[in-house]
Design a protein around this nucleic acid. Sequence first.
DNA 1: GAGTGGTCTAGACCACTCC
DNA 2: GAGTGGTCTAGACCACTCC
Lengths: 261, 261
Amino acid sequence: MSSNPPNSNNNPAAVNTGGAGGSSPTFSPLYQQIKALITQSLQSGEWKPGELIPSEVELANRFKVSQGTVRKAIDELAAENLVMRKQGKGTFVSTHHEARAHFRFLRLMPDEGVPHYPESKFIEVKRTRAPADVARLLDLKSGDAVIFVKRVQSFDGVPTIVEELWLPGLTFKGLTAERLEEYKGPMYGLFESEFGTRMIRATEKIRAVCATEGDAALLKIAVNTPLLASERVSFTYGDKAVELRRGLYLTERHHYHNELN
Amino acid sequence: MSSNPPNSNNNPAAVNTGGAGGSSPTFSPLYQQIKALITQSLQSGEWKPGELIPSEVELANRFKVSQGTVRKAIDELAAENLVMRKQGKGTFVSTHHEARAHFRFLRLMPDEGVPHYPESKFIEVKRTRAPADVARLLDLKSGDAVIFVKRVQSFDGVPTIVEELWLPGLTFKGLTAERLEEYKGPMYGLFESEFGTRMIRATEKIRAVCATEGDAALLKIAVNTPLLASERVSFTYGDKAVELRRGLYLTERHHYHNELN
DNA sequence: GAGTGGTCTAGACCACTCC
DNA sequence: GAGTGGTCTAGACCACTCC
């Protein structure tokens, strides 16, 4: 054996010059670059929701980096819920078609009993033009084509949520009341499977309001009943806003649950 | 040089038998054990909020493990906001005495303008006995000594929050209206400095309610104005509940902000 | 037994801070 | 220049899954 140190770092594929790290002004660690490459493959659909992605060893070979660097990239993707690791099996692309995912965005919990998913009744589905406020939140131009959906959701037959959704017309071309009605399970599952658009994070603003006559009729409650009003903007890859959802929640037998860490 | 492999794992201090890993029924990885040891030192006050903890190399020497194992333990502690890493300086015990920490538990944001911390006016501070519901949430016995605090918080002079706090009497012995009033900044900072109790996480249940006459008078609003009602239980080390906080938020010019990931 | 992710080590070099 | 956390590598062995 020669006296070469066993750990000399001479990765031929490192994008930054130099060994581990580098010192260009736009320096980003190698694992971040690998993470970006994996994210691209997720976004492009090279690996689809629910599918197995290549093993860490395979990805390390493909990108000409060590397994440890791939691990660190995948660690972050797993923390962001883009992939799920399963020891002994592999790493899977996350999907909204799983019990686990159903309550990631639905934070309304029953005061008593086990959380379960509500039934939907669609009130209205139409193509229209984006009002100014909707356009602003979805990063569209005022008047751009959008799809408007209004529905009521019930838990055990009790109407509890009234929601209005605004979706970019281009992304969700072909979305109809029929497709929404025949689809069982969370809408984000439908969006993922049928429109190739995966929601990966959202921001929410919550207020208290009084039920209007229209809301009261849909929820079968008295006018002026206090309701939680949520305005949610959901984002897909590249921080692109792809849904505005305004919901009214009846909190007589449910509450909005949050964990502060 | 002998032909010893350079990476044979023979850590003399590993608690589990065998090398990396182990196979006892109660197996926990080495880094989790190190994390528990560090957490103990945080809890016992060996390193106090705001202070520098020993460097990774020092901790690795102390615990007779590699720096990588210490890193993984500290990574998790940093993710849980128990410590903060600062490159080039070291790792610091987190503290509620920092701008950064102030909005970790206060999620009410102004619709316009920059978030800032509200001013408090204390309405009532008294020692009393825990009602059954409070006792249950704080893991006390009904009738145990508790401290009750009621206050109104204002943003730019506009009353916006009415809060009632219930604190275990034993933990917060000596808390008086005077100490609360003379203290500037978030209450969790006071609890941390004066009572050695650091809040590290909380769960929150949110509902919409109508302002009662009492609430309306304190917030200078009309009776029946819709308000957000938050019930928060805060925990310190060891998942011990140490505060019940019931708040009413006026959401005319503010909203509860949440990020869904 | 082969393949996967999970843990652990040792060592090199980097970015950053403080002096 | 010394000390800190941050990145990267190579390699060993483990827990777990599937056959």
